[in-house]
C-alpha cells in the first residue's frame, strides 16, 4: 500500500469517528418519530420495465427487497424496489428470519 492509501484509511476512520461524535453532541435537538413497518409491501406493484429487467438479468437467487424512503420534497413515503445479492447480509438475514418463522 502506498503512503496515500494509508493516509486515506486513517482519514476515513477519523471522518467516521468524527461524524459519530458530532451526532452524539447534537443529540438533544433531534426528535425521533415512530416508523411503522408498511403493511403488505408484497402488493407494491412493480413497473413493467422493472419486471422486464428482472426477467433478463436477474440471477435466479437474487432476493427482491423494498427500500422505504421519504420523498425529499413532499415528505411522503415512497417505496423503491431493489434486489440484494443472495450472499449479502441483508438476504441472509431475511432467509434466517423466514426459516425461524417456519420452524415456529
Amino acid at each position: 500500500k502506498t503512503e496515500e492509501d494509508l493516509q486515506f484509511e486513517a482519514m476515513f476512520d477519523k471522518m467516521a469517528a468524527d461524524s459519530y461524535q458530532e451526532r452524539i453532541k447534537e443529540l438533544p435537538k433531534v426528535t425521533t418519530r415512530d416508523i411503522p413497518v408498511p403493511m403488505s409491501t408484497k402488493a407494491i406493484k412493480k413497473t413493467y420495465e422493472q419486471l422486464q429487467e428482472n426477467d433478463d438479468k436477474q440471477e435466479t437467487n437474487a432476493v427482491p427487497f423494498v427500500l422505504m424512503v421519504r420523498n425529499s420534497k413532499s415528505g411522503k413515503q415512497q417505496f423503491k424496489n431493489f434486489v440484494a445479492p443472495p450472499d449479502s447480509d441483508l438476504a441472509m438475514n431475511l432467509k434466517m428470519q423466514e426459516q425461524k418463522i417456519r420452524e415456529e
Binding site: M15, S19, R23, L27, T41, M68
Partner: peptide, 24 residues
C-alpha cells in the same frame, strides 16, 4: 451524512429503511 447512515430490515418482511446510527 453517509458516515452515520445505515439501514434496518423489518423482522419478517423484505422491507428496509435508512436510519442514522444515533439517535434514530
Amino acid at each position: 451524512n453517509v458516515f452515520v447512515l445505515g439501514f434496518i430490515p423489518a423482522k419478517a418482511d423484505s422491507v428496509v429503511v435508512l436510519l442514522c446510527r444515533q439517535p434514530c
